[in-house]
């Protein structure tokens, strides 16, 4: 019995004790984690610097809120308006764009609103509202949710009614819900490509310049958040923006498809987003 207790104590200590070397907390959007990007690139950073990275995969709104309480060392998010507020409120400094891809409107293959194959996201949303085709909204203040709300504003529509379903969940939950309900939803391309339950869903609308999805890394202002590990966090931000980090982002492929474009590989001047499998 005593031996069992000792063994247990050692096991518990091993689990609780911090491993050697510094570890920083990166509050990130779910898309870069769920798509497998961070699991691909962060080990390269850790190998190069000895700094371990603990990833909190949250929606952009929650990630910024976590960081604003001083509970993260660095944020990686994708909602330009919320990021600007975060910086204006004095929490963040040194915003850098490190990757981009695009959003797509995902919908049932049966396409009840007849929007498939289009390239105008706003026109498609109008059609969905007119036909009252089911639409799943994240409703979680994430970057994707923020863009969806902006698109509805551009369309001049305040979505409401039984067809508009706010699920208050992450991207994967929204895709699972859309699949189950035969509904449309807005998804970032990375999560969509990595998603394992596509079943009756397909990409309906893509290639609209308004669907550009940029990922920014923001450091926390050490004057506002003195407990933050500014040094190692800054090294991760620098590495993500460095040629080495940018190459790692561009190298990540899932089933032969590139999911994220490094910032250096900027979208063409007319902002026409490349679409289809090559993205």
């Amino acid at each position: 019995m005593r031996r069992a207790c000792t063994a247990w104590l050692l096991l518990a200590l091993a689990a609780a004790a911090p491993a050697p070397g510094p570890a920083i907390v990166l509050a990130s959007t779910t898309s870069v984690e769920n798509s497998g990007l961070l699991a691909h690139i962060l080990p390269l950073f850790t190998a190069a610097t000895g700094i371990r990275v603990h990833v909190l995969a949250q929606g952009t709104g929650q990630a910024l809120a976590t960081a604003a309480r001083g509970d993260a060392d660095l944020v990686l998010v994708h909602d330009p308006e919320a990021e600007a507020r975060f910086i204006a409120e004095g929490h963040g400094i040194d915003r850098r764009e490190i990757a981009w891809n695009d959003f797509i409107l995902v919908g049932p293959l049966a396409d009840p609103a007849h929007v498939a194959g289009g390239h105008d996201a706003v026109a498609a949303l109008r059609r969905i509202a007119e036909t009252s085709a089911p639409f799943v909204s994240r409703g979680d203040a994430s970057g994707t949710d923020a863009l969806e709300k902006r698109l509805w504003r551009v369309a001049g529509i305040t979505p409401s009614g039984g067809w508009y379903r706010e699920i208050g969940g992450g991207m994967g939950q929204a895709l699972n819900a859309a699949e189950a309900m035969g509904a449309y939803t807005l998804s970032d391309r990375g999560t969509w490509l990595a998603f394992g339950n596509k079943a009756g869903l397909g990409a309906s609308v893509e290639g609209d310049p308004r669907l550009l999805n940029r990922y920014d890394v923001i450091r926390l202002d050490p004057r506002r958040h003195p407990a933050v590990q500014s040094g190692p966090a800054g090294r991760l931000a620098d590495w993500l923006a460095s040629p080495e980090g940018q190459a790692a982002i561009g190298d990540y492929r899932l089933g032969g498809t590139q999911l994220f474009h490094p910032d250096a590989d900027a979208p063409p001047a007319d902002s026409q987003i490349r679409s289809g499998g090559g993205c």
Binding site: N34, G172, L175, N197
Partner: peptide, 11 residues
């Protein structure tokens, strides 16, 4: 919870 959100329902 994570694998469900990734659509890996079997896993």
């Amino acid at each position: 919870a994570l694998e469900t959100s990734k659509g890996n329902l079997g896993l």
